[in-house]
Nucleic acid binder design. Structure first.
Lengths: 197, 197
DNA sequence: GTATTTTTGTAATGATCGCTATATAAATTG
DNA sequence: CAATTTATATAGCGATCATTACAAAAATAC
């Protein structure tokens, strides 16, 4: 049940690996942000000329949206950490720690591409990224509804806020250990809210 | 003891109010971000032609730096809230609440201009903003050194992280009450760290 | 083979970017 | 009065922005 095999069409076959090109675009977008990278640089990194880029992906914004989907799939293992039935407070603390570690792991790809993209100057790109951001918040809410329905909203908001701040710090060069210390401190508030009441 | 009166120089006098022009630039930078506003739009909002802008402020980045200084002076009352001798945990909680309120007060100027500027694509502008960001973190550390020297670093990091996240949320349109709820929740961790140990 | 379809590389579109050369206007200085 | 100094407005600089005509190339279809 994989995705449908692309039956080789009629015209001239594409000369580049579409997914590999997406990977190159992801690396560049993550390193420099949507506003910081131009189509010329993207095309060069993807080993492609601009017309092929537009034929395959539609526009810079559409390419970014597709890259965001790829990133959301292979990025933070939110669903694994927030499995239904897992103890809420430790699971959320683990998610914050994991975020702190991943955001600062590679200086070339510091921070979260979704959360950074949500603050860019381009309206289209920011809108796409904010949709993914909202989807992540929704996953946290859904995870909390069964056990702490009344606190699900504020805790989900808090998680996204802290992760957004961690992402900014990571991009500014804050080292991993300080990010993890902040994540651990942030976890205290989660335990407070989810254990009392 | 005000700043030295600018003795009227020799040449043709400036035809616009320099501080009022800075105010217009501040409004535009805050509304659209450094990357989102061009020199042409700035000059028009300031009621000035580009050459006068450059003669008075040097460059777009230098203008932004000067605007950031103006903003840091008239923005969050950090020094008032973090007066020496104030009870640390309530003071920091009040600062987070104040930030949440101010960041979402006016949709035209949502978020913190310093924290948002620190994530822009332009290296020069981001560097300026990060200096102001670091200065704010330093003020929190200095405030905590007398009473909680061992926790000053992590708490200051945490404050900046949460405020950066609140700023991002405010720019995304999160309403004031939800931001304040997150700020209050974030305050719990501060109390935990500063009262125990 | 010829027709059709799709991708390719070259080159360029108009728009906007930050910035400035130039000349004129308005002030002080002697 | 000239001479000097500074600010002004017009107009345009080269560079880059996202995007696209255009025609040659490479595949299938008949």
């Amino acid at each position: 049940m994989t995705v449908k095999e692309k039956s080789k069409g009629r015209g001239r076959p594409r000369a580049f690996d579409r997914d590999a090109a997406l990977g190159q675009a992801q690396a560049l977008f993550h390193a420099q942000g949507y506003d910081g990278v131009g189509v010329a640089a993207l095309a060069q990194a993807m080993g492609v000329n601009p017309p092929s880029l537009y034929a395959a992906f539609g526009s810079k914004a559409a390419l970014f949206d597709e890259v965001l989907g790829r990133y959301a799939r292979n990025g933070l293992p939110i669903d694994a950490l927030l499995a239904p039935g897992a103890p809420p407070a430790p699971a959320l603390r683990a998610l914050l720690r994991e975020a702190a570690n991943i955001y600062a792991a590679d200086p070339q790809t510091a921070g979260c591409m979704v959360l950074e993209g949500a603050r860019g100057a381009d309206a289209q790109a920011a809108c796409c990224a904010r949709n993914w951001k909202a989807a992540s918040a929704q996953r946290v809410r859904d995870f909390l509804i069964p056990t702490h329905a009344d606190k699900a909203q504020v805790v989900a908001d808090y998680m996204v806020t802290v992760m957004s701040g961690l992402s900014a710090d990571a991009r500014a060069g804050t080292p991993t250990d300080r990010l993890v210390a902040v994540a651990d401190m942030a976890g205290l508030a989660i335990a407070d809210v989810l254990t009392e009441g």
